[in-house]
């Protein structure tokens, strides 16, 4: 899933405070799981902003609403009226949702309420961990199912680097070295000999480096 983090309220407040009708708009899938951008968080942020408006003596009206996903047309119907009412929308979706709204509602100003952080999992309650960078050419088959592209600070494909220290990354002792995890898992699987296979130079053109990406299924486009 996509993990995001709410921007500091000072930052989002500065975006919206000069409008008269502001909609704080939740996205109730990925960013709801990480408790940052769901419909419930939209409700709370809207209340905080109403308090700020009162404190600052501003007369803007702030409502909240939300849908299941801001990245697909089919979910928008239930919120159409709220969106049309607003002269600015503070979207609590990831960057994908914010831009989808910009495309869908070219007349309305849409602002980002979150910083989109990473693609990750729910390691345990309250802990979300990056585990994919969508490089477009998965290497997990060669790395014992642990991704060095997203989980190594230097994305080295033939690690560990010299900074791996007692199982931790050189940049933070609480961050496991991805290559330590790979080696441990290879050993547990009885495949440590695979460690000596050299990973070839990676084709990064399927990643960000190759420009914005698209997936097309013509059979579904009619």
């Amino acid at each position: 899933m996509i993990v995001g983090k709410q921007k500091p309220i000072e930052e989002t407040w500065a975006m919206v405070k000069d409008f008269s009708r502001v909609l704080v708009f939740g996205c109730n899938t990925c960013v709801a799981v990480c408790h940052e951008g769901g419909n419930k968080e939209a409700q709370i942020l809207a209340s905080l902003m109403r308090m700020k408006a009162t404190q600052e003596g501003l007369s803007l009206e702030i409502r909240d609403s939300g849908i299941e996903r801001q990245c697909e047309h089919e979910f928008f119907e239930s919120a159409e009226k709220d969106i049309e009412w607003a002269d600015a929308v503070l979207s609590l979706a990831c960057g994908v949702g914010v831009q989808f709204m910009v495309k869908r509602y070219p007349e309305i100003l849409v602002y980002p309420g979150l910083d989109t952080c990473f693609l990750g999992d729910v390691e345990k309650n309250g802990l979300f961990t990056e585990s994919c960078q969508a490089c477009g050419k998965c290497v997990l088959a060669e790395t014992a199912g642990i991704c060095p592209v997203s989980r190594c600070a230097k994305r080295v494909l033939n690690g560990p680097c010299g900074g791996s220290n007692k199982g931790a990354c050189e940049i933070n002792k609480d961050l496991p070295c991805a290559w330590q995890l790979i080696v441990d898992r290879l050993e547990a699987l009885g495949r440590l000999a695979d460690y000596e296979r050299l990973a070839p130079i990676k084709d990064w053109s399927t990643e960000r480096a190759g420009g914005p990406r698209k997936l097309i299924h013509e059979e579904f486009m009619k």
Partner: peptide
């Protein structure tokens, strides 16, 4: 491969690592 940039004077900079040291 080089130390991570967070140790130096440009901690907010990008790192490249297009290749690794073996490559």
């Amino acid at each position: 491969s080089g130390d991570h940039q967070s140790f130096g004077d440009c901690a907010t900079g990008q790192n490249v690592h297009d290749l690794d040291s073996m490559q």
